[in-house]
Amino acid sequence: MKDHDKYHKWVEWSDEDQVYVGKCPDLITGIHGEDPVVLYGELCAVVQDVIRHFGAEGKPLPSPRVRPMREVA
């Protein structure tokens, strides 16, 4: 598994801001945009950039802690 696959990423609509917001709380606060598909691609690229930056600085990556919610049966 690649490092960027360990981190939960998602895009959701913000009624307050009237834009889509892409999130990966273990690594970044978030980004926003008008198209959810395009935004998800941009979010993945930002996460990969952050991971590369940690590596270039010789810093360990934070442990992935945010996970998708599961339905309880």
Rank of each mutant, 00 (worst) to 15 (best):
M1R: 04
M1Q: 06
M1K: 08
M1I: 07
K2I: 05
K2P: 12
D3I: 00
D3T: 06
D3K: 13
H4S: 09
H4Q: 08
H4G: 03
K6W: 05
K6Y: 05
Y7M: 04
H8V: 05
H8Q: 07
H8N: 07
H8S: 05
K9C: 10
K9F: 07
K9W: 02
W10M: 10
V11D: 02
V11C: 06
W13E: 09
W13K: 06
S14D: 09
S14K: 08
S14P: 10
E16S: 12
D17M: 09
Q18K: 12
Y20M: 05
Y20N: 03
Y20W: 13
V21A: 05
G22I: 04
G22V: 03
G22C: 08
K23S: 09
K23Y: 12
K23C: 15
K23T: 10
C24R: 00
P25F: 11
P25V: 09
D26S: 09
L27R: 01
L27W: 01
I28M: 11
I28F: 04
T29E: 05
T29F: 06
G30S: 08
I31M: 03
I31G: 02
H32P: 00
H32I: 05
H32L: 05
G33P: 05
E34D: 10
E34C: 03
D35Y: 03
D35S: 04
D35T: 04
D35G: 00
P36G: 04
P36M: 08
P36T: 08
P36E: 05
V38G: 04
L39T: 04
L39M: 11
L39P: 01
L39C: 10
Y40N: 07
Y40L: 14
Y40R: 06
G41R: 07
G41Q: 11
G41H: 04
G41I: 03
G41N: 12
E42W: 01
E42V: 05
L43A: 00
L43P: 00
L43R: 00
C44T: 15
C44M: 11
V46P: 02
V46E: 02
V46F: 01
V46M: 08
V47L: 07
V47E: 00
V47P: 00
V47M: 01
V47T: 04
Q48I: 09
Q48R: 13
Q48F: 04
Q48E: 15
D49N: 14
V50D: 02
V50T: 15
I51D: 14
H53L: 12
H53R: 14
H53G: 06
H53Q: 15
F54T: 01
F54P: 00
F54D: 01
F54S: 02
G55S: 13
G55K: 15
G55R: 15
A56E: 15
E57P: 03
E57R: 10
E57S: 11
G58Q: 15
K59P: 00
K59Q: 13
K59D: 11
K59H: 11
P60V: 11
L61W: 06
L61S: 11
L61C: 13
L61G: 07
P62D: 08
P62I: 09
P62R: 14
P64I: 05
P64H: 14
R65A: 14
V66E: 10
V66N: 13
R67P: 02
R67D: 13
R67E: 14
R67M: 15
P68C: 11
P68T: 15
P68K: 15
P68I: 07
M69I: 11
M69E: 13
R70I: 11
R70W: 01
R70V: 15
E71A: 12
V72R: 14
V72M: 08
A73F: 10
A73I: 09
